[in-house]
Each structure stands twice: as structure tokens, then as C-alpha cells.
Simulated assay, not measured.
Amino acid sequence: MSEQLKDQVAIVTGAGKGIGRAIALTFAREGANIIIADKSPQLASQTYQAIKAIGKKAIAVTTDVTQEESVVEMVRQALEVFGNIDILVSNAGIQRRYFVADLPREEFQAMLDVNLLGAFLTCQAVLPTFYTQQQGNIILIASDSGKRGYAYNSAYCASKFAVLGFMEALADEARSYRVRVNALCPAGVKTDMGKMLQEADGTSVNDTYFMEAEEVADVALFLASHQSRAIHGQAINVYGGVDYRLTR
């Protein structure tokens, strides 16, 4: 079977663990060269070693998506090593749960900074390359919380609703440059971030109905591939075949 992303170059932010790591490995198995962008050099290195072990090319770049200089440097290194960029997966994100009445302003700002500002900065940094080469593919990892508000998740929901609005606006702009822009909206996923979630009473969130990160990665692969060439400006639900809302 031919590799769906053979010789393409893909940036994946937050690729040190969770959904980002799963996407990076899935894309690498399909022939892509990967820029592993993560704030943690240790986690980025672990993903790099995993990609190297399957015989594929990658570089690990310590990246803070909330800092413009860091993002610009990451893109510079990608172009220096690989010569071009074909795919951006803006995945880096954080989630913390609070009652609105108890939500510290700094926590609200942190979720906006990573989830929304980070998406903006990474997209802005790759767009000149995409527009010049008249092709590119941007995949934003949003959330079902970008479509429906949930108690104790006001800041996270606000950031992800904003990501979907940003995606739609960017998709409208980028269309004439032959750059596709879409978003994935997963429900619960079995990641470290998911395991850290707690209910308002302090008990752990029931994750028995959560998806594996690889399930999300496979949908990201579809969006990155030629098979999805007719899809643009869409926010695709990724619910793992389960109506998770009935389990709450």
C-alpha cells in the first residue's frame, strides 16, 4: 500500500504526547517528514525517537506556541531542514476546570493564550510559505467544547469556540491561495490531559467512553490526505462512534 503522505512535511504542535504524538506517528508511518513542536524538550525527544525507530525523518523543536519568536524560529528550522512545509496541525492545548465564580483570571488567560493565540501564531507563521507555494493544509484541533458549552469548562469552551470562528474566517481567506483549513472537534480522549480532569466534587471524570488518541489521528490523516481534497472550512465531530452525551 502506498504512503498517503509520502515526502510531505508536517508540523505538529504539542506533539510530545497525547493527540499530537499520535498524529505525528501516524503521519510519519504514512511517509511524512515531521516537525515535532513541543514546549517540553524531553517529550519532543521521545516522539522523535519513536519516529526514528520506524525509519522516518523528523526534527524536534522546543516551541512555546504562545510566544511569536518561538513559533517563527520553529518554522525557520522546518524550512531550513526540509525546504518546504505542506501541513500544519495546530494541536497544542490545555484544559482546566473551574466554576465560573472561582475561575482565576490567570487560568482563563492561560487557556486563551495556548488554545487560541497559539493557533493564531502558528497559522500566521506558516501562511507566507503556503501562500507563496499556492498550496498547504491546516488542521486545527478544536473540541466538541467548541460547539457546546459545558459546566466547569467556561474558559476552555470560550477558547475552542473562538478557534472554530478563527478557522472559518481563515478558510474563507485562504481558499483563493489553494490552502485548505479545517478543524477536528474530538470529545473525550484518553490522554494525560483527559486523566487530569475532575468533576466539581473532586472525583475523576469517567473516561470509560473516551476515545484513544489514535482514533483522532486517523481522522487527521484523512484531512491531511488527498482523499479529503473537497473538504474545506469544516469543523468535523470526532466522537468515536459513541453518543458520549448519554453517558453523562
Rank of each mutant, 00 (worst) to 15 (best):
Leu5Ser: 08
Lys6Gln: 08
Ala10Asp: 02
Ala10Asn: 00
Thr13Cys: 10
Thr13Trp: 06
Gly14Lys: 04
Gly16Met: 01
Ala22Gly: 07
Phe27Lys: 14
Arg29Met: 08
Glu30Gly: 04
Pro41Asn: 09
Ala44Trp: 01
Tyr48Ala: 08
Gln49Leu: 13
Gln49Asn: 14
Ile51Val: 13
Gly55Met: 04
Lys56Glu: 08
Thr62Ile: 12
Thr62Pro: 10
Thr63Lys: 01
Asp64Ile: 01
Thr66Glu: 07
Val72Gly: 02
Val72Gln: 13
Glu73His: 14
Met74Val: 11
Arg76Lys: 15
Arg76Gly: 07
Gln77Thr: 11
Leu79Cys: 10
Val81Tyr: 08
Gly83Phe: 08
Asn84Val: 10
Ile85Lys: 02
Arg96Asp: 14
Arg96Ala: 12
Tyr98Gln: 11
Phe99Glu: 13
Val100Ile: 15
Arg105Trp: 12
Glu107Tyr: 07
Ala110Val: 08
Met111Tyr: 09
Asp113Ile: 07
Asn115Cys: 07
Leu116Tyr: 15
Leu117Ile: 02
Ala119Met: 08
Ala119Trp: 05
Thr122Leu: 06
Cys123Pro: 02
Ala125Lys: 05
Ala125Trp: 03
Pro128His: 05
Thr129Lys: 08
Phe130Tyr: 13
Tyr131Ser: 03
Tyr131Asp: 04
Asn137Met: 03
Asn137Ala: 06
Ile139Trp: 02
Ile141His: 00
Ile141Gly: 07
Ala142Gln: 03
Ser143Ile: 11
Asp144Lys: 13
Asp144Glu: 15
Asp144Ser: 14
Gly146Pro: 10
Lys147Thr: 10
Tyr150Ala: 14
Ala155Ile: 05
Tyr156Ser: 07
Tyr156Met: 10
Cys157Thr: 06
Ala158His: 01
Ser159Tyr: 04
Ser159Ile: 05
Lys160Glu: 03
Ala162Val: 05
Ala162Tyr: 10
Gly165Leu: 15
Met167Gly: 00
Met167Asn: 03
Glu168Met: 11
Ala169Cys: 06
Leu170Val: 09
Ala171Glu: 04
Asn182Ser: 01
Ala183Trp: 10
Leu184Phe: 02
Lys190His: 12
Asp192Leu: 10
Gly194Phe: 04
Met196Tyr: 00
Leu197Gly: 13
Gln198His: 10
Ser204Ile: 02
Val205His: 12
Asn206Ser: 05
Thr208Pro: 01
Tyr209Leu: 05
Phe210His: 11
Met211Leu: 13
Glu212Arg: 11
Ala213Ser: 13
Ala213Val: 10
Val219Glu: 08
Ala220Glu: 00
His232Met: 11
Gln234Ser: 09
Ala235Phe: 09
Asp243Val: 15
Arg248Tyr: 13
